[in-house]
């Protein structure tokens, strides 16, 4: 085999390895997502048994990193994801992350939920002002209306601390950008 053949074989092997690596990452994310969904189902079952919301006594709730804290749905876009606590790499692998220190959906203040654009928040490419967002958490089920959509630079201090309940969904922008996206999409919603 000549050197050209060796190079072509090496290219194919390297390409296959990269595809396997990315595929494995996606598979791990899918497994983590299923685990979080199962955990959320357990929590909902516990709530049903208790016959009360999570904030009432008798219900189990944990705010440890990586544990499910809420569920976010956008019916028009078919988005339905379980939100976990924290926005680190491990947390964002399993689902959208609730930014630690921000309010829970339904509390007074800004609630920030972030996810990868190529996974859980891919549907946000079709979001529009006036869309309905539904959140379910220990604070109860709340319907939100998208009030503002903006694109900011990645390093812009764009997350405001509000006194009133505000939901902010963030992801990278452009949605179909290949590589580290330079901007962030911020979808703001207020309770209906």
């Amino acid at each position: 085999m000549n050197s050209r053949g060796t190079v072509s074989n090496a290219l194919i092997v390297c390409g296959a390895l990269l595809l396997i690596a990315s595929g494995a990452s996606i598979a791990r994310a899918a497994i983590a997502r299923d685990a979080v969904r199962a955990r959320w189902a357990e929590i909902e079952a516990g709530r049903a048994v208790a016959g009360a919301r999570l904030s009432t006594s008798g219900a189990r709730w944990s705010s440890a990193r990586g544990t499910p804290v809420a569920r976010v749905m956008i019916p028009r876009l078919g988005l339905d994801e379980v939100v976990v606590e924290g926005v680190g790499d491990d947390e964002l692998r399993s689902g959208p992350g609730h930014m630690i220190g921000s309010a829970l959906p339904g509390d007074s203040g800004t609630s920030v939920i972030s996810a990868h654009r190529d996974r859980h928040f891919h549907a946000l490419r079709g979001i529009a002002v006036g869309d309905t967002v539904i959140t379910d958490s220990e604070r109860g089920t709340i319907s939100w209306t998208v009030s503002r959509i903006r694109v900011v630079r990645a390093d812009d201090p764009a997350l405001d601390a509000r006194a009133t309940p505000t939901l902010m969904l963030t992801t990278c922008w452009p949605i179909r950008y290949v590589g580290p996206a330079p901007d962030r999409l911020i979808v703001e919603a207020v309770p209906k």
């Binding site: 290219l11 194919i12 390297c14 390409g15 296959a16 390895l17 990269l18 595809l19 690596a21 990315s22 595929g23 990452s25 996606i26 926005v87 964002l92 992350g97 930014m99 630690i100 220190g101 921000s102 800004t110 920030v112 972030s114 996810a115 990868h116 654009r117 190529d118 996974r119 928040f121 900011v152 990645a154 390093d155 812009d156 201090p157 764009a158 997350l159 405001d160 601390a161 963030t170 992801t171 990278c172 290949v178 590589g179 580290p180 996206a181 962030r184 911020i186």
Partner: peptide, 26 residues
């Protein structure tokens, strides 16, 4: 962690780029 004037979390991922470069190499 959230605070007043915080930046949006780093949700950028290299997975699409890695997959695309793999396809390109193949």
């Amino acid at each position: 962690e959230f605070k007043k004037g915080a930046r949006a979390p780093d949700t950028a991922t290299l997975i699409p780029a890695i997959a695309l470069s793999g396809v390109a190499l193949i």
